[in-house]
Each structure stands twice: as structure tokens, then as C-alpha cells.
Design a binder for these strands. Structure first.
Length: 569
RNA sequence: CGGGGUGUAGCGCAGCCUGGUUAGCGCACCUGUUUUGGGAACAGGUGGCCGGAGGUUCGAAUCCUCUCACCCCGACCA
């Protein structure tokens, strides 16, 4: 490809609406352009990178025994009503009507469609297991799209679904998919980790996320400094704290704490650390108020809380509700001396406290010498808090938790029978009896992985593409297009490389050398072949590596093999 | 949805507070000449419904009202 023919509008200045580096660089390198919030067009170079990644995904999916299908982007509402998600999914689901006023959505994920397909076409256990996948444009009407391709509304995703007659078969495919994902991200040269995850709105029994490590990642990852345990903060398990018997705790007593409604205020006022406090929050769980207790230095993990309470809707209560439930303004709630009967859910660490402090359910008043178990008894005690740095590891005896940040690029789930039951998708098993399919589902964010690759591979000059994703491997740069000899040599080199099936872009533009170097570095071609004075004077071609800026000089006869070696690594 | 902010040439911005010739600057783009190993120089040019609608005024990019879009923080999320 000649650069002079390529639509690649590089931009010198950083666009002011691009927050993260991958977004900035993709815009600046002329790879994507924004059409609306969270919706992008891909220009030739950007699309080529997407295609490179998709090809890797296809190869590994096929190798894992999955078959490619192509499902519709627009899905009739009935299917979603059948699974119950038409109601559950909320505003994120983009709904629309056709000319007959029939309801549809743009699929944000395709469990319903694939389950419908399989229930129509698969009758016998002999046809199982079956793995199908597609690469499709999806739409989720995110509340706040941001970070370019990282969190768009329209986005490319590879989603695979597997169908099984028994759990052992699902386990085998789940493991095979996990290996396929490892292969995919390894081939892209990414530094990633597999972490335990919450299965979220998709549902299911167990799931793991593939996280590309990056300081700008949206997800916090808890990992043990001793064993191999790693989990998304949302799902990271916390080891129960040792319980203090609290034998010596005196009877509780109230103490005036004027205007000290926040934990920091009260700790400062009383001169006791936050660890001695019981933080009391009022939540609305399916429209019923619940008192939620965590230690003063901990935060509530709403995902865990949701699981414990088994509820769909969960949110912090309005100030008015707090008043009616506790009889005091926000900031003075506590589990002791409550005016009305309310459900109380306590984090396990709260029960480990002795001689604790909490609100007195009275304005400007707290209670000291509270002994959990003696002075109040929660209905539920469970792990409902976020893990923090330094927590003892749940899985091993000696480790403690550290925290890292990552970008979720893949997620695999054991769905079980959730969708097959809802959609009554059944087959005949070996005993001739009807049985619902056992399912798994496996997603990879296409654009997001490409963005993550940039987050992980860039410098002050621009992108440094891993060879596997680079739009072209080699950029042939002719430094002076007014020099007919130089152009003739460059044309010849371009032709030779092309004939040798090297993916090459030929920067034949009548631009100054500086512009060509800057663009080459911005776009991030892994290898530059620079054709300038040295070629004419000494017959030496300069090969420059983007990642290290290392330069090698070779004669023309060695150029092709030198490049092929570099591309192969 | 709550809080904050921005819409002026393809991009980045000034002008607005305090209304008044033909709306300006840098980059990009076009023409010519000179340049070509790190985002060149000179000269000449193209390009604007000042986001949209309504209002106030002799007169509106500027003041007022409404509206749309986008961005940031928060809640949400494979």
C-alpha cells in the first residue's frame, strides 16, 4: 500500500475530548473517528488492526472446536421476554419498533438468539457438545460512554456459546475456551491475568475474566502476594476476621458528638481509629429498607450484598427513609436502640469487633462500648465488603492482598441451565428423556482488546504495535521524493517486499522527512526501512525498530531475509 | 438521572463580561518558488447559517428564554 493513497488523517494535536491514551492515539493516528457518543467509524488502518485481531480470534476459536455463525444484530422482543431479560435489562438495552410497531432490541449479547437456534435444531445428546461463536457488532446504551473504544456503546464482540448434556462436558469446554483465550492474548503479546469474577447480569455459576494489566484500567484486581489467587474486586473473597469474645466490654453508653456525622469526623472527635467503628448504611432492597453494617474502614460491596439479599434492585436509601427508619438524620444510624424493627445485615468483620462505636439513632449522638452479638444480633452475617490491600488471603494462610488495575478483555461463564430453562430448550438424552441444555458463554471485546494493546504498548511518540496486531509490519520511508534515483530504488524495494509477501506500507508522500518519521512512530509500524543518503552513497539500507529505536544497516540482497526474521521474531 | 463545563473554518482556540465597519489567530488545505535525515521558508489564496429556535434592540457571535449535541465527576455496567 502506498501511503499517498491511504486515507490516514493523522493529527498533531491531542483531541480535547479524548481522555485515555489509547483513544488519543487512535484518533491522532487516523485510525478511528467519532460519529456520536460511544460510536466510532474505523478508517482503513484502524479497521485493518481490527481484522488482524479477529483473524487471531477465529483461528483460536476454530482450533478449540467452535463453529462460526452470524446472528442478527436486531433481535425481536419476544425472545427477550421469554428469558425475562426484556424487563431486567433496563435502559442499557436499546429498544426500537419497526413499521408494524413490533418491538425489537439491538442485541447487547446473544444468549437468547443462540438458545433459540439450538432448541430448534438440536434434538439429541448425540449432537452434543456443540460450540458456536460469532463476531458481531453489539450495542449497549451505556449511561456514560467514555475512553474511546474501551467503553463504547456500539462495539465489536466475539461471543461463543456452548451446549452440553452434562456438567463434565461443560467443564471440559470451559477449560478449552480458557486455553483458547490464553492463546489469543499471548499471541497479541499482551500482559494479562485470569481472575475470578462476578457473573453479573448474564448470570451463571462461575466465571473468569481475562484482564490486560494497565494502570488506566477500569477494574480493580485483588491478588495474593503468595498464592495464585486473583479476583476482580467485585468478586474478591474476604477471609472472616477472628472474633473477639468481648467479655470485658462494659455496657454501652451514649456520648455527644455534635455535627460529627461522618466517620472521619467521629474518629477525629473521639480519637479512635476507624477500625473501631461500625458504619451503618440504610439500603433499599427491592423497596424494603435494610440496615447494612461494615467496619468503619471498610466499604460495602453492593454486588456481594445483592447476592446475600438475593435482590434485583438495590440502592442507598433516601435521606427521608433514613430518618424514618432510624429516627435520626443521616450520619447517626446504628444497629443498637433502633426505634423500629428492620432487617440487619452485617459484614463478618463487624462481628469480630469488641467495644465498638456506632451511631445512636439520635442526632449528634453516638454509642460506645457496643458489643456485637450482645447488643444487637444481625439477621444475616456475611462477606459483604470490598477487599482492601493488606487483607489476609482467602485461599492461603500466609498471603495478603495487593491491588492492581486491569482492562477486562474477555469473560467466560458457566451459565448452566439459566437460559435453556427459560426458553425451554431441550434435547433427548441417552435414556430417551427430555433434558435442558447445560450452557457456557464466552466473550472477547474486539475493539477493547485493541485499545488495551495500545494502553500497554506506547511511548511518548505514539503506538508500538505488537507484530500480531500491526496494520502493516514494515514502513518503507523514502526521505526525498524529489530525488528520482532514490524514488526509483524505493519503488523497487516496495515491489520486492510485496512480492515476498511482506506486509508493507510505502511512504511515498512528498512530505519532509520529519513528518514521515513522526507519522511512522505515531502509527506504530513495528519496522521502518529508511531510504536516504546512505543508500546512494554506501548502498546501505537502514532498518529501524519502533519499539527500541535500534538501527541496523543491511545491503539490498539481505533486506528481505532480515525483515522476515524480524517479523517472525 | 444529579453536579460541573463546552459548542465560533477540517483541528486547536481568541472575541462574548462592557452589543456597533467586512468575525480573527495557529495548524491543516489549494497555487507558485525555494526546501527534503526529525512535524520547512516566502508569497498568494480557499474555506464560517458563530450548534439550533425564539426574543430584546436601530443593530446580536456577544444580552434573555427554550432546545440540541458533546465533554468531565458521580450512580450503572459483558
Amino acid at each position: 500500500m502506498r501511503f499517498s493513497q491511504l486515507l490516514c488523517p493523522t493529527v498533531r494535536e491531542t483531541p480535547n475530548d479524548a481522555e485515555v491514551i489509547s483513544h488519543q492515539l487512535m484518533i491522532r493516528a487516523g485510525m478511528i473517528r467519532k460519529v456520536a457518543a460511544g460510536i466510532y467509524s474505523f478508517l482503513p488502518l484502524g479497521y485493518r488492526i481490527i481484522q488482524k485481531f479477529e483473524a487471531i480470534v477465529r483461528e483460536e476459536m476454530n482450533r478449540a472446536g467452535a463453529q462460526e455463525v452470524f446472528l442478527p444484530a436486531v433481535v425481536p422482543a419476544e425472545l427477550w421476554e421469554e428469558s425475562g431479560r426484556w424487563q431486567l435489562y433496563g435502559k442499557e438495552l436499546l429498544r426500537l419498533r419497526d413499521r408494524h410497531n413490533k418491538e425489537f432490541c439491538i442485541g447487547p449479547t446473544h444468549e437468547e438468539v443462540i438458545t433459540d437456534l439450538v432448541r430448534q435444531t438440536v434434538r439429541s445428546y448425540r449432537q452434543l457438545p456443540l460450540s458456536l461463536y460469532q463476531i458481531q457488532t453489539k450495542f449497549r446504551d451505556e449511561i456514560r460512554p467514555r475512553f474511546g473504544l474501551m467503553r463504547g456503546r456500539e462495539f465489536g464482540m466475539k461471543d461463543a456459546y456452548s451446549f452440553h448434556a452434562n456438567w463434565e462436558s461443560l467443564d471440559a469446554t470451559y477449560a478449552a475456551m480458557s486455553r483458547a483465550y490464553e492463546a489469543i492474548f499471548k499471541r497479541c503479546g499482551l500482559d494479562f491475568r485470569i481472575v475470578e469474577a462476578d457473573s453479573g447480569a448474564i448470570g451463571g455459576d462461575s466465571s473468569a475474566e481475562f484482564m490486560v494489566m494497565a494502570a488506566t484500567g477500569e477494574d480493580a484486581i485483588i491478588h495474593c502476594n503468595t498464592c495464585s489467587y486473583a479476583a476482580n474486586l467485585e468478586a474478591a473473597k474476604v477471609r472472616p476476621s477472628p472474633v473477639d469474645s468481648g467479655d470485658k466490654t462494659p455496657a454501652y453508653a451514649s456520648i455527644l458528638t455534635p455535627n460529627a456525622g461522618k466517620i472521619e469526623d467521629v474518629t477525629a472527635f473521639l480519637g479512635r481509629p476507624a477500625e473501631h467503628f461500625i458504619k451503618t448504611l440504610v439500603y433499599m432492597a427491592n423497596e424494603v429498607p435494610v440496615l447494612v453494617l461494615v467496619r468503619g474502614d471498610h466499604t460495602v460491596n453492593e454486588i456481594k450484598l445483592r447476592h446475600v439479599l438475593d435482590c434485583q434492585e438495590l440502592s442507598l436509601a433516601e435521606d427521608e427513609t433514613v430518618k424514618s427508619v432510624t429516627g435520626a438524620p443521616v450520619g447517626f444510624a446504628g444497629p443498637v436502640a433502633l426505634p423500629a424493627a428492620v432487617r440487619i445485615v452485617a459484614d463478618a468483620a463487624v462481628m469480630g469487633l469488641a467495644d465498638a462505636v456506632s451511631g445512636a439513632n439520635q442526632k449528634d449522638t453516638h454509642l460506645t462500648h457496643i458489643q456485637p452479638g450482645r447488643d444487637f444480633v444481625p439477621e444475616i452475617v456475611a462477606d459483604i465488603r470490598d477487599a482492601i490491600v493488606g487483607d489476609a488471603c482467602y485461599h492461603c494462610d500466609s498471603g495478603t492482598y495487593q491491588i492492581l488495575r486491569g482492562i477486562e478483555v474477555g469473560h467466560i461463564f458457566k451459565l448452566g441451565e439459566k437460559y435453556s430453562q427459560a426458553l425451554n430448550a431441550v434435547f433427548l438424552n441417552a435414556e430417551g428423556k427430555e433434558q435442558t441444555f447445560i450452557m457456557g458463554c464466552y466473550g472477547v471485546g474486539i475493539g477493547r482488546t485493541v485499545a488495551a494493546a495500545i494502553e500497554q504498548n506506547h511511548d511518548a511518540d505514539g503506538i508500538i504495535w505488537p507484530m500480531a496486531l500491526a496494520p502493516y509490519h514494515v514502513d518503507v520511508i523514502v526521505l526525498n521524493t524529489k530525488d528520482a534515483d532514490l524514488v526509483a530504488i524505493s519503488d523497487r524495494i516496495y515491489q520486492t517486499l510485496t512480492e515476498n509477501r511482506i506486509e508493507v506500507i510505502y511512504d511515498d508522500r512528498a512530505e519532509s522527512a520529519g513528518i514521515k518519521f513522526k507519522d511512522a512512530e505515531l502509527i506504530g509500524f513495528p519496522i521502518q526501512v529508511i531510504i536516504g543518503k546512505k543508500v546512494k552513497e554506501e548502498g546501505l539500507f537502514e532498518i529501524k525498530l519502533r519499539a527500541t529505536k535500534e538501527v541496523r544497516l543491511v545491503v539490498e540482497a539481505d533486506l528481505v531475509s532480515a525483515l522476515q526474521d524480524l517479523i517472525r521474531n
